[in-house]
Design a protein around this nucleic acid. Structure first.
Lengths: 252, 252
DNA sequence: CGACACTTTGAAGACGATCAACGCCGGTGG
DNA sequence: CCACCGGCGTTGATCGTCTTCAAAGTGTCG
């Protein structure tokens, strides 16, 4: 139990809650271990819990009627899995969630959460802020999708990954499979693969699982010739801001 | 002044506020008339006001570095123009807003709004709910964009329009120009125009400005053979729900 | 009538999806 | 130890769709 409390405290979402509230939360939540491949919930299931990912990786996806699977997001430790659903009025999940890497998930009954959200005066603003960030992120992504070429999107995504995970730009390994990334980027694996070759021409070398940016400037920042949205590209502005100020990521 | 109060009361966002709170709001807000073509704000401007559109039409858009204009949304009477920005932490606008049809805009100083939001106990939940709806909407749209053909998107969009404005499916006029719609759908005007011709084959006839659905079933509901996302397509589910329950649209 | 904004239509081209074959690697089982 | 298999990734060839560029048509309003 004390282990659970420790876990709660490491979550950025709860980091500035007073001790008493953490205890209260702990007594109304539990941590579930889920191994690779299990589903946290399926599209259409009743919403039972507010879930936060404490460890591992989770894929949010939806299935189109013709059986095609569309990845809507890939979550990592510290992310809320279904923050919207605390606030929204629908009673069933709009997406499915599958564990990609063995995960630990904190679960808080949704009803309790909804009823007591207002008791936690610091929690609601955080949740909201994260919501509005996600909304902006979704819009930026939509804009990118209709503005940039596949090559640009991949470049942006890789840089984003690097910032998000605080990887060394000079060399790091992809945190998940290319198949998953391609799906996340809404492109065919084949297209993604070809794209990676093209990226070498612009200073991003990818060999197998290993990525290295050879196009860094003296300050160590990304040089993104091929990204047309220098000003507030998900990589440049939003994401690098996010890395500094993001309230919901584990930064340690 | 009493006119302004009446205006406030007709806004769904404020509809269930007690009289005293409406008065309070009125004393801290004002209504601005804006004629076609004026900019409410530009990308990068400081955020000064929370704005609600009381009349007319507003286009939200962003400009890409190469000068291309991307419409992110088209707002109608009753819509919050920048609900996210009340909640988010950034101090400058992330989009630009242009008046398409002569508009009336209610403005509330953003600082006052942020400081006093918690005083209006019924307001915050509405704002949040609308945020989460928009997030879901954005995600659905992203999914559509990568799942459906241009033809399907246009069909969906037209049906959505019809529901949103409560038009008669048997015949109505487009509420704004094809150029604007095409931009909103992130497609070239030429593509959009060609698409409209194809739609006749599936029971949606468009001549000039006039649209008619000839593919309605006996209940008067849309039949959407070409939309692959019957279950929660923006048209079918989300939008028809929204038309009934949406808290932020003027339904009269 | 003429200017102008808006829309339609045509023809060419670019880009990504799709289908298909192959290579690589780790695991399982004989 | 080798053979087989399945998951994953690469590569090639082809095809359809949407963009792009360009020209011509429609409408409105002074």
């Amino acid at each position: 139990m004390s282990k659970q409390i420790d876990m709660l405290k490491t979550l950025p979402l709860f980091s500035d809650l007073p001790e008493s509230q953490v205890l209260l939360l702990a007594s109304h939540s539990h941590i579930r271990k889920c191994e690779r491949g299990t589903f946290l919930f399926l599209h259409g299931d009743d919403i039972r819990n507010f879930k936060i990912l404490c460890r591992g990786t989770v894929q949010l996806f939806r299935e189109t009627p013709d059986g095609h699977e569309v990845t809507s997001d890939i979550l990592i430790a510290g992310d809320c899995i279904n923050a919207e659903e605390v606030i929204a009025l629908q009673t069933t999940h709009l997406t499915s969630a599958r564990v990609v890497d063995d995960a630990q998930v904190l679960e808080v009954p949704i009803r309790w959460m909804r009823e007591h959200l207002s008791d936690f005066d610091r929690l609601a603003p955080r949740l909201l802020q994260s919501l509005s960030e996600r909304l902006h992120g979704a819009r930026m992504e939509a804009e990118h999708r209709s503005t940039m070429s596949a090559t640009q999107m991949v470049a942006c995504y890789l840089q984003g990954l690097c910032v998000l995970y605080d990887f060394d730009p000079n060399g790091f390994d992809l945190p998940y499979s290319k198949t998953l990334i391609a799906s996340r980027l809404r492109m065919e694996l084949a297209t993604f693969s070809r794209t990676l070759q093209k990226l070498k021409e612009v200073g991003i070398s990818v060999n197998g699982n290993h990525v290295a940016f050879t196009n860094l400037n003296q300050a160590g920042h990304f040089v993104c010739d091929n990204c047309s949205m220098a000003e507030d590209c998900a990589t440049h502005r939003a994401l690098s801001q996010m890395a500094q100020t993001d309230s919901l990521r584990i930064t340690s």
